[in-house]
Design a protein around this nucleic acid. Structure first.
Lengths: 230, 230
DNA sequence: GAGTGGTCTAGACCACTCA
DNA sequence: GAGTGGTCTAGACCACTCC
């Protein structure tokens, strides 16, 4: 017979909570008691409980003990995808096409998002990512050349700006926005959609030490679903 | 002098990776070696490395060892909001309205998502959340009555199923999906939109100990943007 | 077969927090 | 002060994976 694993213990505690043997707000037995009950070391019980606490199912406090969470504050983690990796991970062939690349002053609206002065040196790149030959994402990006001057030397005709930035301009902060929108005429054409189609739009601004790096708008056909687990 | 903590070890390894002393793709020393270097037990080094692996900074494989991740998988965390809290946090008035509530067998498509047999006992609830009198979210939900029988006794006419479930049926796992879609006629009417409007759809399935709890489809008008920071 | 990470134990001491 | 969780150690065996 196998020794009791922390996973077994975690599962059993989950079960008791789900069966309401232990109700929200209620204190559950201490680590010592559980260890005795399960015939395991306290460290093993501790690991199970720590994972449940991280998941938000229980709340732990020294001296008070462990209680079933009343209002589980849940956090989900989601991985920031690299388009190419995302496509290849699902077994499809990735293709990249540069649509346009132009160095020009940053327009007002973009400057505001980047927190810089309108007219600052910017690089605008538009490109298309395809999966198995079908348009997957249309990318419209502004890069702040004051922060990332090296980008000015890149043509982005073979490698997309996303991949280049990942390798060359680490960021410390990011803000994402997700929304639904009606495709603009350009977006509809690029993605091969009817005019007026609904598209999934993800926007992201990234910074390094308070200086903005890039603003990107990623547009997906309506068939696209962004999935995250927790 | 304090003993070496797993946090110290984690921080030092992070430093070496960010300073590029250990480069992406490179194998780093094994747990045994690091334990010797830091003067700690192997279990302590193990915990530090496990956390770094969870954060996506390193990849671990038995026999092969631990290597610095090639494409550091960045993770964002976002808090799963309670609609009411989300609306009230932005200073608007929250209103809830129950649209329909019916106990009936779970249809095929929903059963598949919930991992149960079609025809199992289910509770279907539709409701509308408004902010300052304007439709904010239309919620269409199925609850698995085999897992949460107590929900059968709730009318959901004053408190929404979301809030009720949070307090009465904790979950351990969830899967989210976000997408853009064209509003169905019902959704358009409920949200006060023109037919054919683009809507932002969030879906969520939750489980506790492998048993599904609920499947919910949350539909927002196109003005809605979901924001997250990291 | 052998090397590396994964997990468990038994015991110990620490740190936080409540009373 | 005392109770409970947080962490560390030293040693052991297991499990996966590469050779």
């Amino acid at each position: 017979m196998r020794r009791t694993s922390f996973k077994d213990i975690r599962a059993e505690i989950e079960r008791r909570i789900s069966m309401r043997l232990w109700r929200p707000g209620e204190i559950i037995p201490g680590e010592e008691a559980l260890a005795a009950e399960f015939g395991a070391a306290r460290a093993t019980v501790n690991r199970a409980l720590q994972e449940l606490a991280r998941a938000g199912l229980v709340e732990r406090k020294r001296k008070s003990g462990t209680r079933v969470a009343l209002h589980p504050v849940r956090e989900a983690r989601f991985v920031i995808p690299l388009v190419r990796a995302e496509i290849e991970a699902s077994g499809m062939a990735y293709a990249y096409r540069l649509i346009s690349r132009e160095e020009r002053p940053v327009p007002e609206a973009v400057a505001a998002r980047l927190g810089i002065a309108a007219g600052a040196a910017g690089l605008h790149v538009a490109c298309l990512h395809a999966a198995d030959g079908r348009p997957y994402q249309y990318e419209d990006r502004w890069i702040n050349l004051d922060t990332v001057p090296a980008a000015g030397g890149e043509r982005f005709d073979a490698v997309g700006p996303n991949e280049w930035l990942v390798a060359n301009a680490p960021f410390s902060q990011a803000r994402f926005g997700f929304a639904a929108a009606i495709a603009t005429p350009v977006e509809a054409r690029m993605l091969g959609l009817e005019p007026g189609a609904a598209v999934f739009v993800a926007e992201r601004v990234t910074w390094l030490s308070g200086r903005s790096i890039t603003l990107v708008r990623m547009v997906h056909p309506p068939s696209h679903t962004m999935v995250m687990d927790m």
